[in-house]
Nucleic acid binder design. Structure first.
Lengths: 158, 158
DNA sequence: GCGCGAATGTTGTCATTGACAACAATCTGC
DNA sequence: GCAGATTGTTGTCAATGACAACATTCGCGC
């Protein structure tokens, strides 16, 4: 009667247990969304811890990249491209402006032109280095081949 | 003055249709996590609206399925299998118990055995019907073939 | 020009979620 | 029996998503 195996090789407190996934998933096995989410959460956790040094969240990172690739565009365009709602993007940008990584120039009377500051550019190079390490770690964990296949499938979908 | 829609013809090789998404994603294009998240959010939105009639969120749904597939297991096991934290699962289960869809039987003195009630089973059949419709809609939107390829890749990993 | 509906950005609020910490009760291993 | 781990519970905090309301400004038809 000893079905109590996990106690043998337990990691330090705070770590996650070895492989406690023993239960059947049932119908969950036929849901693409479930597996997508599990992997996405895994990846984001790695990203967040990697970028914690720069106190940067994934959404902020994506905004910085899109501003870099499209200097001078409006908040509305950025938001639409990334699927970030107006209200949330406004607050997110205020934070980036407070850190002096971006500037918001009146272009329209009602809209702003978003650009990186010099400071933002240097920060972004450091950030990209960390993000690259993150992505390499993901490639290793997921498997480079599987990662490429997933990227192709998802990018094609758009 | 009219430097408006310079980006009107951006789709590389017959990519996505004409949408408000016209900005370049920059480095974001090399991040698997970004694409995973976009699709996952899309799918979850469909799931949530589909299951709104039953007032059921994705996490609750997954818990019900795993309880159904593994009757009598503890909260700890369920949580570990689904990646749901103890505290959050406790509250989630209280809600399911309040609705009389599950019962929690003392098994251990400190742990519970989770099972579906009769009522929970009938609710779950209705829920599964809705979830099936949701999944079919996803298959159509993503493309049945692409969906299968993604499922295979993701399931192999997990 | 004028006026009206749309677009843009801002602020406020609410519900959900994730992450932790602290805690009581209980179990396990020695 | 005891020390430490496990299990479930409650509390709190920050981040997020979703909406609504609002002021300002633009676009467009007339």
């Amino acid at each position: 009667m000893k079905y109590r195996q996990a106690a043998a090789l337990k990691p330090r407190a705070g770590e996650y247990a070895v492989q406690p996934d023993k239960l059947h998933l049932g119908r969950l096995n036929s849901h693409l969304g479930y597996f997508l989410r599990r992997l996405q959460v895994l990846i984001f956790q790695d990203f967040i811890t990697t970028l914690k040094a720069m106190k940067l969240r994934p959404a902020q990172y994506s905004v910085l990249l899109v501003i870099e690739a499209n200097p001078g565009k409006s908040q509305a365009l950025i938001g639409q491209s990334l699927g970030i709602e107006r209200a949330r993007l406004a607050r997110l940008l205020h934070e980036l402006e407070r850190r002096k990584w971006i500037r918001r120039l009146r272009s329209d009377g009602r809209s702003y032109s978003l650009i990186l500051t010099r400071e933002g550019e240097t920060a972004l190079t450091k950030i990209k280095n960390l993000a690259e390490k993150h992505e390499a770690r993901i490639a290793k964990k997921v498997g480079p081949k599987r990662r490429m296949q997933l990227m192709d499938l998802l990018r094609d979908f758009g």
